[in-house]
Design a protein around this nucleic acid. Structure first.
Length: 906
RNA sequence: GCGGAUGUGGCGGAAUUGGUAGACGCGCCAGACUUAGGAUCUGGUUCUUUCGGGAGUGGGGGUUCGAGUCCCUUCAUCCGCACCA
C-alpha cells in the first residue's frame, strides 16, 4: 500500500541532492528539515508580551500510554495547530502548549509486575509521545511542556489542595473564603477547642471523614461515584464494586452547584455538554415536609418536588440506610425489617437500580401523620428510595407517581387520587379517578382540602397548587421550599502509589494538619514493592521511613498514605502552562491575568462531565480566593469526534480480524472460509486489528498528508471512519501542489489571470473563515479547487504562489515552508502575516441565472451582473426553452431573486 | 423511560438568510503516455429512461412560486443519564 518505500525515498533524496530530479515531492526530507529548523530557531516560542492581543488554545493533554499515539490524538492537535498558526499570522500572541497527564494506573500496574519504577516507564512514554507529536509538525512551545508527575508540578497541585483545605464556602455570599475568616458561633466556642475544630472541619472544602464509598476489590482502590458504571462495575476494570465504610478525603463540590450551573449559560460550549453537566448537577425545586411519627418523638423529613400532592400521600418510604430506621422499627417488625436491610446492603448497585426488577420493601410497623390531612399513614422501608438523594425518605403518592404506584399495587397500599386528569381520554380518566391508574401530568385537584387545617387547593392547577401548599407548610412550620441537587461530595483519595501524595499528617492524638508550604512538594518514597498494602491501604503504607514523622515536641505522626486521583493534575494544568517553571508560585499573577481564560479548548467528549466539571470547580475556588482572575477557565469548548475504522463481520455477526479479510470487486471475503463479509464501522481495537498507527501514515505519506487527511475526513465534531485511500487522495493533492507551485518554471511575471485571481481571493477568504469556524474540511476542498485551476492554467505569478503558500501553511506547514523558501523568501512562512483578500476580486461580472418553470430548473441565463429585474424577466420569458415549457400559456407570476434565481409560474 | 445528536450517490462528505442537490476527495469506467504500472495525465460517473423526459436528501403529510434546509408526524442509528421523589 505504501506509495513510496523507504529505499525509493532514499534514492529520490539522493537524486534531489544532485538536482537530477528536482520536483519530486520528497516529503520525508522536507518535513524533517523544517521540523529541525523550527526546533533550532524556536520558531514557536511564546513570549509573555502583554502589549499584544493574546489567544490561548488548549488541547486536552494526553495520558502517555505505552501504546503510543493513535489517530484520534492528531485529529484534535492538528485542529488546534491550524487555529494557532492562523491566529499567529493574524497578529495574535498565541499560547498553544502541550504536556502530559502522566499519573495513572498502567505505569503502576507495570511496576507491580516488573519492579520498574513508574517514573521510569512514564518518562519513556512521555519521550515517545513527544517524538510522535513532534513528527506531525505541531507549532508548540516545547519549553512550556508540563508533566503532572514532575515534583515541580505536583508541588503546586498539593498547594492547591491546601487552599481547598483552608477554605470554607460562605453560602450567603456564594463565595469561598479562607477558614481564618470563618465566624465561630459563641455556643461552639463555649464547648471548647475540640468543638471549634470540628466546626471548622465541617466547613472546609476538603475534609477527611468516614464515608460509605465504592470499593473495587480487583483494583484494591476506592472509586468516586462517577467512576462506577450503572451496572455496578468499575469504569477502569469492569469488575463489580462493593460498598465499604472508609476514612477518605472528600471535596464539597455540591456547595458550588449553583455557581457551576449558572456559569454554563455564559460559555460557548456545545449544548449537549452543557446539558450533561446540568443533568449531573441535577437541580430540582421542591419542598421539604416534616411528618410527625407516632409514639416516638421524631419527625421524618422528606423531600418532594410535588408538595401539591400531599393530600394523596398514603404511605411513606425510607431507605434502608436511613439514620432513623432503628427508631422507627416497632418491636414486632424488628426481625423482618433488619433482615431486609441486611439483604439490601448485600445487593449490588446493579440489583438495586435495575428498573425492570420488581420493587421490594417491608413495613416497619410504624405510622406517621400526614400533616395536611391528619391521617395515619404507614412507614415502609424499601431500596427504591436512595440514601444519598434528598433526605433519604419520601412521601409516597401512588396515584400520581409511577414508582409509588407500582409499589402500592404490589403491596396493596391505599391509592388516593387527588387530581382529575382532565386532559386524559375517558377510559384512562375513569381509571385514574378510581385509583386504578397513575397520572403524573397536570390536572385539577380534588379531595385536596381540610377545613380544620385551613387549607384547600381544590380546583387549582399544579402550578398554583405547589405555591399554595408550600406557603401553607411554611406558615405552619412543617415544611419549606427547598432546592435539591443530585451532585455529591467528590471522593478525592485513592489507595495508589502513582499519584500526588497528600500534604497531610495524621498525628497520634488524632489531629490532622497540612504540611507547611516550605515542605512542599511532599515527594513519593522509593519502594521495593508496589502492591497495595493490607487493610485497603495504599502501597505507601509500606514505606516505613517516609511514613513516620515527629514534630518538634516529639509528637508522633503518620503521613497520609492515600494519593490524589488522576483528575487532580488535570484540574489546573492549563494554568501551569502560563508559567511552567515558576518555583515561587503556581504561576505569575500578571501572566495569568494576561493569558486567561483559555480561548479555545478542544478535546474528546468523554470528559464532558468529570474533568470539565472538576476543573471548573477548582477554578472557581481559586477565583474566589483571588488566585485567578476569571470565573470560568474555558471560554469556548469544542469536542472532536471519534475516529473509527472499518471492520468486518460474518452474516452471523461474528467479528473478523482485518488480517483475514480480502477485497474482491468491492466485496469482502474471509481469506480462510471464503465466506462473504459485511463491512461495518467500529472502534479501533487491538482485537479487531483495525488500529491505524499515525507513525505508519507519516512514514508512507508524510506529516502534512496525515494532518490534511485528519481534517479532510469530515466535520471536526463528527464521528467518522478512517479510510486509507482517503490519505492517498490528500497526498495526491499535496504532491500536485508541490510539483506545480514548487517549480519556478511555472512562475510567471506580470499581471495574474483574472480567473486565477478570483479563485485565489475566494480561497483566502474561505480558508480564513473556515478556520475561524473550525470547518477545516471545506477549507481544504477550496484549496484543492484552486490548485486544480492553477494547474489547468499552466502558469501563475510568483505573488499567487506566495499567497497560496501562506494560505496552506496552517494546514500543511512543511510544504508551505518549502514553497516559501523556493520563492526565495525567508525566514519562515510561519512568521509572515495571513494574506488579505480583496472584495474587488470577488465580484462577479456576469451571473448565471438558473431559470425555473413551475419550480423546475429548465435552462440557464448568462447575463451581466447589473441586469435589472425587468430585463431579466423579459430575457427569461423570451427564451426559446421557456416558450417550449410554457406551451403557449402566459406566465402568471415571475419571481426574480437578484443574484440567485428566476422562477416562472404558469 | 428522559436528555442530546445524526440520517444526502458505491464510500467519506458539500450545499449563507428557503433559491441550480451531490462541491471536494475516494472508488469505478473510458482514453493518453509507457517495457511495465497499485505512477502520471485527460474525460466521464445520483438513479432511471422509449433519450422527450421522469424520480431523487430515512418514511408519510404540510407551508411556499420554490424545501436537504421551515412545521407536524413517524422510523432508524449513535452518545449521555437513568427508581433523583
Amino acid at each position: 500500500m505504501h506509495l513510496l518505500r523507504k529505499e525509493t525515498q532514499d534514492l529520490l533524496f539522493s537524486q534531489f541532492e544532485n538536482h537530477i530530479c528536482k520536483m519530486e515531492y520528497n516529503f520525508t526530507d522536507i518535513e524533517q528539515r523544517w521540523q529541525k529548523y523550527w526546533e533550532e530557531h524556536k520558531t514557536f516560542r511564546t513570549e509573555d508580551d502583554f502589549t499584544r492581543p493574546k489567544f490561548y488554545i488548549l488541547d486536552m493533554f494526553p495520558y502517555p500510554s505505552g501504546a503510543g499515539l493513535h489517530v484520534g490524538h492528531p485529529e484534535g492537535y492538528t485542529a488546534t495547530d491550524i487555529v494557532a498558526r492562523y491566529k499567529r499570522m493574524k497578529g495574535y500572541n498565541v499560547l498553544h502548549p502541550m504536556g502530559w497527564d502522566a499519573f495513572g494506573l498502567p505505569a503502576e500496574q507495570y511496576a507491580i509486575e516488573t519492579g520498574t519504577h513508574p517514573a521510569v516507564t512514564t518518562q519513556k512514554n512521555c519521550d515517545n509521545f513527544r517524538e510522535q507529536i513532534k513528527s506531525i509538525g505541531l507549532g508548540c512551545d516545547w519549553d512550556r511542556e508540563v508533566n503532572t508527575t514532575d515534583p515541580g508540578y505536583f508541588k503546586w497541585t498539593q498547594w492547591i489542595f491546601k487552599q481547598l483545605y483552608n477554605t470554607w464556602f460562605d453560602e450567603g455570599l456564594q463565595k469561598a473564603r479562607p477558614v481564618s475568616e470563618l465566624d465561630i458561633p459563641g455556643e461552639i466556642k463555649q464547648q471548647g477547642q475540640k468543638a471549634v475544630k470540628d466546626f471548622i472541619t465541617g466547613k472546609r472544602l476538603a475534609y477527611y471523614d468516614n464515608a460509605s464509598v465504592w470499593w473495587c476489590p480487583t483494583c484494591r482502590i476506592v472509586c468516586a461515584n462517577e467512576e462506577v458504571l450503572t451496572d455496578g462495575s468499575h469504569e477502569k476494570c469492569g469488575n463489580p464494586v462493593e460498598r465499604k465504610n472508609l476514612k477518605q478525603w472528600m471535596l464539597r463540590i455540591p456547595l458550588y452547584a449553583e455557581r457551576l450551573l449558572a456559569g454554563l449559560d455564559e460559555l460557548d460550549w456545545p449544548e449537549g455538554i452543557k446539558e450533561m453537566q446540568r443533568n449531573w448537577i441535577g437541580k430540582s425545586y421542591g419542598a421539604e415536609v416534616e411528618f410527625q411519627l407516632e409514639e416516638v418523638d421524631e419527625q421524618l423529613r422528606v423531600f418532594t418536588t410535588r408538595p401539591d400532592t400531599l393530600f394523596g400521600a398514603t404511605y411513606m418510604v425510607i431507605s434502608p440506610e436511613h439514620p432513623l430506621v432503628q427508631k422507627i422499627i416497632t418491636g414486632s417488625m424488628e426481625r423482618e425489617v433488619n433482615a431486609y436491610i441486611k439483604a439490601a446492603g448485600m445487593k449490588s448497585e446493579l440489583d438495586r437500580t435495575d428498573l425492570s426488577k420488581e420493587k421490594t420493601g417491608v413495613f416497619t410497623g410504624r405510622y406517621a401523620i400526614n400533616p395536611v390531612s391528619g391521617k395515619r399513614i404507614p412507614v415502609w422501608v424499601a431500596d427504591y428510595v436512595l440514601t444519598g438523594y434528598g433526605t433519604g425518605a419520601i412521601m409516597a403518592v401512588p396515584a400520581h407517581d409511577t414508582r409509588d404506584f407500582e409499589f402500592a399495587k404490589k403491596f396493596d397500599l391505599p391509592i388516593q387520587c387527588i387530581m382529575d386528569p382532565e386532559g386524559a381520554d375517558q377510559q384512562l380518566r375513569k381509571e385514574v379517578l378510581e385509583g386504578d391508574a397513575c397520572w403524573a401530568e397536570d390536572g385539577t385537584y380534588i379531595h385536596s382540602s381540610n377545613n380544620e387545617k385551613g387549607i384547600s387547593i381544590d380546583g387549582l392547577k399544579k402550578r398554583d397548587g405547589i405555591d399554595k401548599i408550600t406557603r401553607w407548610l411554611e406558615e405552619k412550620g412543617v415544611g419549606k421550599a427547598t432546592i435539591n441537587y443530585k451532585i455529591r461530595d467528590w471522593l478525592f483519595s485513592r489507595q495508589r502509589y502513582w499519584g500526588e501524595p497528600f500534604p497531610v499528617i495524621h498525628w497520634e492524638d488524632g489531629e490532622i494538619t497540612v504540611v507547611d508550604d516550605s515542605e512542599l512538594p511532599v515527594e513519593l518514597p522509593e519502594l521495593e514493592k508496589y502492591e497495595p498494602a493490607e487493610n485497603a491501604e495504599s502501597p505507601l503504607a509500606n514505606a516505613t521511613d517516609w511514613l513516620s514523622v515527629a514534630d518538634k515536641n516529639g509528637r508522633k505522626g503518620r503521613r497520609e498514605t492515600n494519593t490524589m486521583p488522576q483528575w487532580a493534575g488535570s484540574c489546573w494544568y492549563y494554568l501551569r502552562y502560563i508559567d511552567p517553571k515558576n518555583d515561587e508560585a503556581p504561576f505569575d499573577k500578571a501572566k495569568e491575568n494576561y493569558w486567561m481564560p483559555v480561548d479555545l479548548y478542544i478535546g474528546g467528549a468523554e470528559h464532558a462531565v468529570l474533568h470539565l466539571l472538576y476543573s471548573r470547580f477548582w477554578h472557581k475556588v481559586l477565583y474566589d480566593l483571588g488566585i485567578v482572575s476569571t470565573d470560568e477557565p474555558y471560554k469556548k469548548l469544542f469536542n472532536q469526534g471519534m475516529i473509527l475504522a472499518f471492520a468486518y463481520e460474518t452474516a452471523a455477526g461474528a467479528k473478523v480480524v482485518a488480517d483475514l479479510v480480502e477485497e474482491r470487486d468491492g466485496k469482502f471475503y474471509h481469506t480462510e472460509t471464503g465466506e462473504q463479509l459485511r463491512q461495518i464501522v467500529a472502534k479501533m481495537s487491538k482485537s479487531l486489528k483495525n488500529v491505524v498507527n499515525p507513525d505508519d501514515v507519516v512514514r508512507s505519506y508524510g506529516a502534512d498528508s496525515l494532518r490534511l487527511y485528519e481534517m479532510f475526513l469530515g466535520p471536526l465534531d463528527a464521528t467518522k471512519p478512517w479510510a486509507e485511500n482517503g490519505v492517498k487522495g490528500v497526498f495526491n493533492f499535496l504532491n500536485r501542489a508541490y510539483r506545480f507551485f514548487g517549480d519556478t518554471g511555472n512562475h510567471a511575471e506580470g499581471a495574474e489571470d483574472e480567473e486565477v485571481l478570483k479563485e485565489l481571493h475566494k480561497t483566502i477568504k474561505k480558508a480564513g473563515e473556515d478556520i475561524e469556524n473550525l470547518h477545516f474540511n471545506t477549507a481544504i476542498s477550496q484549496m484543492m479547487i484552486f490548485t486544480n485551476l492553477a494547474i489547468k492554467k499552466g502558469k501563475v505569478t510568483r505573488d499567487t504562489v506566495k499567497d497560496f503558500a501562506k494560505t496552506i501553511s496552517p494546514f500543511a506547514p512543511h510544504l508551505a515552508e518549502e514553497l516559501w523558501s523556493i520563492l526565495g523568501y525567508n525566514p519562515s512562512v510561519s512568521e509572515t502575516d495571513w494574506p488579505r483578500y480583496e472584495e474587488r476580486h470577488l465580484v462577479e461580472e456576469t451571473i448565471e441565472y438558473p431559470v425555473m418553470i413551475n419550480g423546475k430548473m429548465r435552462f440557464k441565463l448568462n447575463v451581466p451582473a447589473d441586469t435589472s429585474k425587468d430585463e431579466l424577466e423579459q430575457l427569461a420569458v423570451d427564451h426559446e426553452t421557456a416558450k417550449k415549457w410554457m406551451g403557449g400559456k402566459t406566465p402568471g407570476k415571475i419571481i426574480v431573486v437578484p443574484g440567485k434565481i428566476v422562477n416562472i409560474v404558469v
